[in-house]
Nucleic acid binder design. Structure first.
Lengths: 212, 212
DNA sequence: GATTTTGTGATACGACCGTATCATCAAACC
DNA sequence: GGTTTGATGATACGGTCGTATCACAAAATC
């Protein structure tokens, strides 16, 4: 039929329409028809590019993963800081804290998917745990480097502390999304703990934070 | 009509049927009809005791809150420990960590409601933040007491550390529910951080203790 | 130029949803 | 003891859901 169209692009447009709905009204509001309307296409097109709803949900989840990791890398780059372990840890964790509209959007969408996967575990067998694990390993590496450089207490167990930092950040993010505190308050709490962690050996404050 | 029946009891039975569904299959699976079946009553009865679905969701949420706080108190009491600040903090946090079937059920259900509230904020105006706030204040109080007793570094900012501990625990809980690690691993991470926090002046390394 | 493919619209189907209505039957009340 | 009232059953209505089907036009292929 009409001009040959870029399949991957169309799929991405539709998938991101779903993500947009999920971030604002939740995944329950993301019906095929709503996604079609949001993407500005007909219901048939959504069906054409994603044969079934599960395909659509999984496809969009993949796009979300891409956006999330892109956000982390971009955020770290935007900090323009020396790639010290401290800066990398700080940049990574603040990237996934919902402080600005974009990170709020991402974390809200992530939370929506999280709940869906809890209810339907077969939907995303391990697509969910892969990225957190990667993040945790990255943080562990940075902490070990910082320990070797004498910036972090060498007696600390790096994997445990890394897991704790990530859990802390996720928990803070949940509290922000839940309206318990705002992004700045969460950032302050995170910074406080990071400062204490990296205060080893240095006389005092080692904080420089460029929030976005 | 038939024998006068205990309204509150019936409401509770139906509400808890919804919580059971929410914990296993998510809130999306909790239709009026499913709740009726799960509770062993007719659809009409569910409508009778909860005029609308929103009423049912809110009513069940209240029951969940009761179960949650009951679990925390019960858990602390079951520890049978001296009511030292350290024990109280430990007991409180481990109570909300999904380590056994019951706490898994509670946290899963809580997560389901959390996602719902994210999508429909008007559903539970502040019913959601009230309990976390209370928990945080309780932890803050215990930390201050511990500081006065010399068990925790007095230089720490108690409210910030309390918020951090709660966020850490919640984040760990999410990772357990998400299948990233099991309850024992999460408990080990939490214990590690608590041990460091309460290591002040007790012969452990006093150079630097951080909770996060 | 005929034919096959690729992309798109319109519409229909059966299932389930929340909610409403009507009927009924036993206890409570005067 | 008739009547009101509290509790429950059966069933229906309009809407939305995911999915399927039919039609059809423009490009690609031969």
């Amino acid at each position: 039929m009409p001009k040959r169209v870029d399949h991957d692009l169309r799929r991405r447009e539709i998938g991101e329409a779903l993500l947009r709905i999920a971030s604002t009204r939740g995944l329950q509001a993301a019906s095929m028809r709503e996604v079609a309307t949001e993407a500005g296409v007909s219901l048939r097109l959504v069906q054409y590019y994603f044969h079934t709803k599960q395909e659509l949900l999984l496809g969009a989840l993949a796009y979300l993963g891409e956006q999330l990791s892109a956000r982390v890398e971009e955020h770290i780059r935007a900090l323009g800081l020396p790639p010290s372990p401290r800066s990398l840890v700080y940049g990574t964790l603040t990237a996934i804290l919902p402080t600005d509209p974009e990170s709020r959007r991402l974390t809200r969408t992530y939370a929506a998917y999280y709940a869906l996967v809890l209810a339907e575990p077969e939907l995303a067998a391990d697509h969910g745990t892969a990225y957190p694990d990667l993040l945790e390993r990255f943080l562990t590496t940075q902490l070990r480097t910082a320990q070797q450089a004498g910036q972090v207490d060498p007696d600390l167990d790096a994997p445990t502390v890394a897991a704790g930092l990530l859990a802390l950040t996720n928990g803070l993010g949940s509290s922000v999304l839940g309206g318990q505190r705002d992004g700045d308050a969460a950032l302050a709490i995170l910074t406080y703990h990071l400062d204490r962690l990296f205060a080893h050996g240095t006389g005092g404050m080692a904080s420089d934070n460029v929030a976005a």
